[in-house]
Design a protein around this nucleic acid. Sequence first.
DNA 1: TCGTGCGTTCAGAATATTGAGAACGATCGT
DNA 2: ACGATCGTTCTCAATATTCTGAACGCACGA
Lengths: 175, 175
Amino acid sequence: MPAATPETVQRFVEAWGAMGSLWGINRSVARVHALLMATEEPLALEEIAERLQISKGNASMSLRELRTFGVVRQVEVAGERRDFYVTEPDVWLMFFRILKERKRREFDPALEAIHALVDAPGATGAVRGRLEQMADLLTTVEGVVNRFLQDPQSSRSALAFIAGMPFGRRQNGKG
Amino acid sequence: MPAATPETVQRFVEAWGAMGSLWGINRSVARVHALLMATEEPLALEEIAERLQISKGNASMSLRELRTFGVVRQVEVAGERRDFYVTEPDVWLMFFRILKERKRREFDPALEAIHALVDAPGATGAVRGRLEQMADLLTTVEGVVNRFLQDPQSSRSALAFIAGMPFGRRQNGKG
DNA sequence: TCGTGCGTTCAGAATATTGAGAACGATCGT
DNA sequence: ACGATCGTTCTCAATATTCTGAACGCACGA
């Protein structure tokens, strides 16, 4: 059973499920993940399905996805034939894996297309200017994201560092 | 007419349309935006619809959304009765507006639910530990995002600064 | 080797999202 | 004041996504 009151767990499960769309995983997957995070002992597939009111099939697919993301793991339970699942302690990892994939599929092609457009002969005046500017911006973003993706470990502490960084409150002269 | 070859513009429009899902705007809206970015002179609604092969209705709604995001503006064209549209130079702004909204709707409730869960009496051992850890992480993320959202201007230069930051390659001792 | 329990897969149902196009209302020139 | 032009809104159709549940296959015990 969960470590807190059922209602609080329930609320967390739903909120997490809704947030899934932020990083592009679907509601069921996120809800399964949330339930495992909120539960101490390993859960069997069927219990997960029952608790979340989803079909066994759906639960199975969701668990598979979570395993490929590396955020859920199967464990053996003595005297049990069924598979049991627990969450990995590092959620961070999931964000990385997903971010990486989305970047590859959605961001990279767009950046490439912009570059093609900027480099194209015939790109003139204002259009060229703003596209160049945008290409620069996206390239910067890409650089930052790549750094983060390269090394989950240190990016985490980098994040904490950035959180403490003094930008945004003092005058910031040059653009 | 666009500032570059039609094919390159086309490619950009499609790539940008596909990338839309990354920040949560739909394909049509993103494509309209892309077309305006790639076009020097103001475009009338009907021409946009024709170029993108979408209905006038859809174009109208898309333009409205882009205007509320503040990335597209209506302009008057001498001797024309129709409305014409141009893109604002600052794309950055759009990301901010959208990010802000999604944070409010998706992220904040989840963070709140986690806190409730951690604070709940009855939260025990391992579960409590990992939820606390996650709450910390998300709170840090929230802090960073809030900073960015607060001030588009300086966050932009902060981004450039971060891009040049030397994390990730040297040993990074503590947590 | 057969029967049972279990997990996975997959076709198609249910649902959510997106888009088309008709209907409408506003504005402008005459 | 009337017709023509244009933009917006809204209903319903098309499409994409998500989910269910039946069918299947595997492993184990008898």
